[in-house]
Every structure is written in structure tokens, then in C-alpha cells.
């Protein structure tokens, strides 16, 4: 329950959320709407930053920053790089 240090990937999600909203790609309200639209079970099944990256992605797709095909292709490439976050993120 206690505040832990956040993992690097979680800090990156937080940074992307702040940067993309400050650049006008979405609002905090847009993120909240996407979080709510995930439904009640998302809260049980997924961690805080898992839900936030999903909401960031949803809003970026809606803003036309990249397409779903680009996302899917890149997620596949990332998975092929290695079994750990460190390998897949190139450190």
C-alpha cells in the first residue's frame, strides 16, 4: 500500500502524459474520460500506470499523432528485441 519508488517505465508514462498534454495533444480530462471508459474491471486488473499508458495511447490515436497500425507494428518490433524491459527498451 505504501508509496514505492516508481519503475523507470512508469516514470516515462508520467512524463509522456505531462509532455503531450502541455503540447496540446490531449487534456487531463481526455485522459480521465479514457480511464473511465475502460470500465470498472480495469481498476482491478491493471496497475495505475498500466491504465495511464492505455489512456495516453487512446488519446494520441484520437489526436492522429500515429495510427493503430504504426502502434501495433512497433509493439511487435519491441517484443522481438528481448525478454526484459531493459533489453526491449534498448536500456
Amino acid at each position: 500500500m505504501e508509496g514505492h519508488d516508481f519503475a523507470l517505465w512508469e516514470k516515462r508514462v508520467d512524463a509522456l502524459m505531462v509532455l503531450c498534454s502541455s503540447k496540446g495533444h490531449f487534456t487531463v480530462d481526455g485522459l480521465r474520460r479514457a480511464l473511465e471508459d475502460m470500465g470498472a474491471d480495469a481498476f482491478e486488473k491493471h496497475s495505475y500506470y498500466e491504465r495511464w499508458i492505455a489512456a495516453v495511447n487512446q488519446n494520441l490515436i484520437e489526436d492522429g499523432v500515429y495510427t493503430l497500425e504504426e502502434l501495433a507494428t512497433r509493439m511487435d518490433e519491441v517484443a522481438a528485441r528481448g525478454a526484459t524491459y531493459g533489453e526491449a527498451a534498448h536500456g
Binding site: F26, T27, D29, G30, R32, R33, N59, E62, D63
Partner: peptide, 10 residues
């Protein structure tokens, strides 16, 4: 403040 019911949908 900006209406969140509009901001939420871009």
C-alpha cells in the same frame, strides 16, 4: 474554467 465535458472529447 474550460468545461471538462467538452475537453474530455477533444
Amino acid at each position: 474554467f474550460g468545461n471538462p465535458e467538452q475537453l474530455a472529447y477533444g
